[in-house]
Simulated scan of single mutants.
Amino acid sequence: MVLELNNNPHIKKIVIFASGQGSNAKRIIEYFSNSQQVKVTHVFSNNIKAPVLKTAHELEVNALHFDRDAFYQTNEVLNLLKDIDPDLIVLAGFLWMMPSNIIEKFPDKIINLHPALLPKYGGKGMYGAKVHQAVLENKEKETGISFHYVNEKYDEGEIIAQEKIALNANETIASLQKRIHTLEHEHFVKVIEGLLTHE
């Protein structure tokens, strides 16, 4: 199902990129579903089997799959984004590096969520449970989440906001993952709302 683009200039448009389950994408879509100011118009995924595509479809948001060629070689994804003209591109569990032509076209309009307190535990290959495992192995006293602008290096863009939690004595990867998800679901929408409605 493909919905008509909303050309109302008063509504800020969000495009979400996700690679997997999409719990953050679902939370963002639902949070803004009744907003008169902000709407999620599209969800893009590099994984054709990603549950996030089904979730987007069920929530009546355009769901699009793309491959490496469309992303890095043919400019197909870039051209789609130009047509949509989003006010914000949100990476919510998206595992590929954004190509430079998209970053250049949408300066300071692409944000990412990382499940640690950057600059610690960032970089290529650091995502999901791998991050939490590293945090626990290094016996950190606290961890959290970081929201940052996207540049051409993994997790090195300017930090927008961070939220911290103290680690429990008996913390496991599973318990930490659950607590971090709760933190993400609470704060992701607040950060997006702040960026799009601050004017």
Rank of each mutant, 00 (worst) to 15 (best):
I102H: 11
A134Q: 06
A166I: 00
N62D: 04
G128F: 02
E152D: 12
N62G: 02
F17E: 08
M97D: 15
A63R: 08
I111C: 09
Q36R: 07
V77P: 00
N47T: 13
T197N: 14
K120C: 07
A166D: 06
E104P: 03
L59T: 05
K109I: 08
N151V: 13
E137K: 03
K153F: 09
Q36E: 12
E4D: 10
D155W: 08
Y121A: 14
L59N: 09
I102E: 05
G22A: 15
H65I: 00
V40Y: 01
Q133T: 10
H57M: 07
P86L: 04
I16V: 12
E76Q: 11
N170A: 08
K153L: 05
G144L: 08
S35M: 10
K190H: 13
A50K: 10
R27G: 12
K164A: 01
L5W: 01
L176I: 04
I14M: 11
P119H: 15
N8P: 00
H132P: 05
H185V: 06
K109R: 14
D108C: 05
I102M: 13
L183N: 15
K109V: 07
V38Q: 04
I180T: 08
R27Y: 13
E142N: 14
F147E: 11
K164S: 09
I16K: 04
A63N: 11
E199H: 04
T41Y: 02
T197V: 12
N101A: 06
N6P: 00
F17I: 06
H65S: 06
N34G: 03
A161G: 11
V189M: 13
T182Y: 04
